[in-house]
Design a protein around this nucleic acid. Sequence first.
DNA 1: GGCGTCGTGCGTACGATGTACGCAGTCGAT
DNA 2: ATCGACTGCGTACATCGTACGCACGACGCC
Lengths: 254, 254
Amino acid sequence: MSQPASRSDPSRSLALLWGPRPQSGRGPQSGLNSSQIVAAAIQIADTGGIGAVTMRGIADTLGVGAMSLYRHVPGKDELIDLMMDTVMGEQYLDYTAETGWRRQLAAYARNALERRLRHPWILDVSHNRTVQGPNWVAVLDAVATIVDGIGLSDWEMAATVELVTGYVDHAARNEFELTQADVADASAVQLAWWEGSAPAAATWMPRGQFPVHERMTRIWYNQDEQQDMFTFGLERVLDGIDMLVTARATTHDE
Amino acid sequence: MSQPASRSDPSRSLALLWGPRPQSGRGPQSGLNSSQIVAAAIQIADTGGIGAVTMRGIADTLGVGAMSLYRHVPGKDELIDLMMDTVMGEQYLDYTAETGWRRQLAAYARNALERRLRHPWILDVSHNRTVQGPNWVAVLDAVATIVDGIGLSDWEMAATVELVTGYVDHAARNEFELTQADVADASAVQLAWWEGSAPAAATWMPRGQFPVHERMTRIWYNQDEQQDMFTFGLERVLDGIDMLVTARATTHDE
DNA sequence: GGCGTCGTGCGTACGATGTACGCAGTCGAT
DNA sequence: ATCGACTGCGTACATCGTACGCACGACGCC
């Protein structure tokens, strides 16, 4: 994929995401379409991460030639935009079963976390790609609807949605990292270093120099803590929003 | 750089980050060292993003051959670990000039935001790299020290630090994105689409289908709003933490 | 039916990137 | 002086995205 240096024309992605599906013309009937390509790409990403997604790999999975993909998807950038919007389609949109904005936001957050953990490569797709397709927009609209009418200004609503979605991304990232074998390995190595149990640790580790950090390290590197940490952080964020909403209601009452 | 698929042995990075600098031996005196390589890499990244950092590019900048870099840095993964820790060294560590944990956390957050905006490529380095060097650990220790002794358990402290640092990452990402020409371009295109002013918009855009999202879009895509949004979000987070700290103090008083 | 054009699949080739391997030369220890 | 450690780096290779153009099938027009 293109690194965060530059990317292709966003109009190409927008046309793909929102435009009508191309109708068959005078040429031979195609045995391939963009949905199949996107699905294969998602499957590969789910298994091996975003880095494992190559045009050749997708072509192999589909049993076609690599270059034939380009008849249906203009480029890899566009393909990734399509992938992102496709998985966005898995996001639950209706939270009215929960009463009150707070419960609804919490439900959204948990659902969003699940989806990220099911497709953790989402977290590794550069955020330089803000081309939003129908599913993505629907999700944002659903979240924004939760905080609509609770007494916040449009600006505050926009900032609140951003705060919550950003929190989910961050939390998912942390939780996912510790499930990765190589990251778990790195964490284990570092934890061992800090605890002085690694062979070379005694040579270099400045034990005692970062006392608070040492106390925190055992918690940060413990995979079993992450679920509770998600809840902790979410409650803090919701508490903060709650204070604002309450202040708004109080001001409004006067 | 290696995509989030797998990465090199973390011990190599740890040894580089924490171990002693290699002493000159019997060979010719080297005109090159890892610090120069890291500095050149950071300069390239600051200018063109993390994607612009290539071993050949670094070698060109330093006027040496690409392969000679490998005498000093085992691989690109390790180089990036070094880069990360080096810029971490720019983070201010002493916030005692501010009174109270809340002001101190806010000061840390602002300083951390600045650093990220100065080196935005940080945000694009995969978080699969959790190998922490001396500077990184010092930063975490400093933040953790701010919340030490305010009545939270170790676990709560760890979660609080995670919440705040995650918030800064997310806020920086949003703020930085909108300064990027290509992202600004994508945003402008999309905003035009949503406002119906783009040439092809009338054909495909489902105007009216996502009413709340449409109201939010103008705010989200407006670069001038981001600074205020950072403050908004930070205050909400700090409010949430404050509620907990207050609750702890109240419980303690009883 | 024949011809021309559109549309599909895809092989070849190329630029870009990380890095394994090994050569040539310098330096220090014996 | 010799040998081994150490440095710089050229060559080559694997991998990856994709430009270009060939071959063939399908459709519309005459």
